[in-house]
Amino acid sequence: MGSKGMLIDMTLCIGCHACSEACKAENGLPGEPGPKLSDTTYTVVEEYNGTFVRRLCQHCQDPTCVSVCPVGAFTKTEQGPVLYDESKCIGCRYCMQACPFQVPRYEWSSNNPRVSKCIMCAPRLAKGLPTACSEACPTGATLFGDRDELIRIAYERMAAEPDKYVQKLYGQQEVGGTSVLYLSSVPFEQLGFKTNLTQAALPQLTWNVLSKIPTVVAVGGVMLYGIWWITNRRDMVQQVEAQQARGNHAASKGGNHVPEPVHQAEERI
């Protein structure tokens, strides 16, 4: 069983908001779906010049939020959903800062705030059911299934009607791929999508540096200790030489074997 996903074909969406209402009911979220994602709205339908765009967590294949969370409150399940465990969260909001799609919302008015976002109906998936939003969609604009299968369907649609579709499956490559995929008849950048996102998964960017920590500590530690060893010994030698010189001075006043380097050493101190 491969990882699941959703294909959102924006040419089929009629903007009925059935998905966001079903989402509210399924997840027990209060209030009506607002115009934007919020701490009580996991998905919304936005309109751009007659085209309806559904927003929700993209459930990245290699999620940035999972990698940045210091306490591991986020996990990517094998079935596809990216889940958040509020009992671990310390509230640093690095997930919100780092998410390339600006999805996680925060309970700003709470004194014990949680991060909130779509969980791709993980409890339903575990029971073998599709997501609530895809089930509620009357036109099939949101299609639930295996991600690989959805990619195949998307390419079939683009090939069958090349004049209708923009030849791009959004989410296939973006930041290493996402479980939620989009098809459109309007260029994505006109629909509020970030089209210049990096193709590689973002966690690698920080791992490149984090993976060097053991080297920095080991090499740096040896180097610092070595420098101390050298400078400290030089100091001690200088002091002894100074001492001996003084001793020689006292022993043989006007003697002819006062060590030359001593004066230089003393000047340097």
């Binding site: 990698s67 940045v68 969370c69 306490v71 310390i90 509230g91 909001r93 925060y106 920080t206 540096v209």
Partner: peptide, 20 residues
């Protein structure tokens, strides 16, 4: 921090992939 009383979580709940 949104949940400052849980700041100690970083001591026992590890995620070495995180810069934070």
């Amino acid at each position: 921090l949104g949940r400052p009383l849980q700041i100690w979580h970083a001591i026992i709940m590890w995620n070495p992939r995180s810069v934070m």
